[in-house]
């Protein structure tokens, strides 16, 4: 795993596609490679969050605690971004993420993340696009849930 490999990896992630190579290298150098074993928890719902992760290899489950117990709401794969909500809007982690397989990630600290976003507008647009996609996906799931549930009214907060 050399720095150059990391740079290549990052370049293939849509979020970083338009960042100039030298900055990408700095990102790769300062970001920390972090590997998790199967079943390790990457972040816990409700905890303070100060870093985001990019999955380089492996898969992870996004689990939300509900009244009916933990529910897996999504599975993240290679090149997916996780943990960005907590550092973007300073709220506690909104979900628990657990490694489904052995997991390789690149950890980006809050400071580094904000620096990148403010330096590269293209990255902000990429993030917006990703967030919009998630809202759209969540809405679709909600619709589905509503149509499946009988008698339970779903109220919007």
């Amino acid at each position: 795993m050399s720095l150059q490999q990391d740079v290549d990896l990052l370049r293939n992630i849509p979020l970083f596609a338009k960042i100039e190579p030298s900055k990408l290298k700095l990102l790769a150098f300062t970001a920390q490679r972090l590997s998790f074993g199967e079943g390790d928890v990457i972040c816990e719902q409700g905890d303070e969050g100060d870093s985001a992760y990019i999955i380089i290899d492996g898969e992870a489950d996004v689990i939300v605690a509900t009244d009916a117990g933990p529910v897996t709401v999504a599975t993240l794969k290679k090149n997916d971004f996780l943990g960005e909500t907590a550092i973007l809007c300073d709220v506690p982690r909104t979900a628990t993420v657990q490694a489904r397989t052995d997991l390789e990630t690149l950890m980006i600290s809050k400071d580094l993340f904000f620096q990148l976003v403010s330096q590269f507008p293209s990255m902000s647009i990429e993030i917006m696009r990703e967030l919009a996609r998630r809202v759209e996906r969540t809405t679709a799931q909600l619709r589905e849930a509503v149509s499946h549930s009988s008698g339970h009214a779903v109220t919007r907060r």
């Binding site: 720095l3 030298s22 290298k25 700095l26 150098f29 300062t30 400071d111």
Partner: peptide, 20 residues
């Protein structure tokens, strides 16, 4: 070479100098 390439463009007070 790598260090100069990576860090030359950073503002002088940047914490990365100390960190990385």
């Amino acid at each position: 070479q790598t260090m100069v390439e990576l860090f030359a463009g950073l503002p002088p007070d940047h914490e990365y100098f100390a960190q990385f």
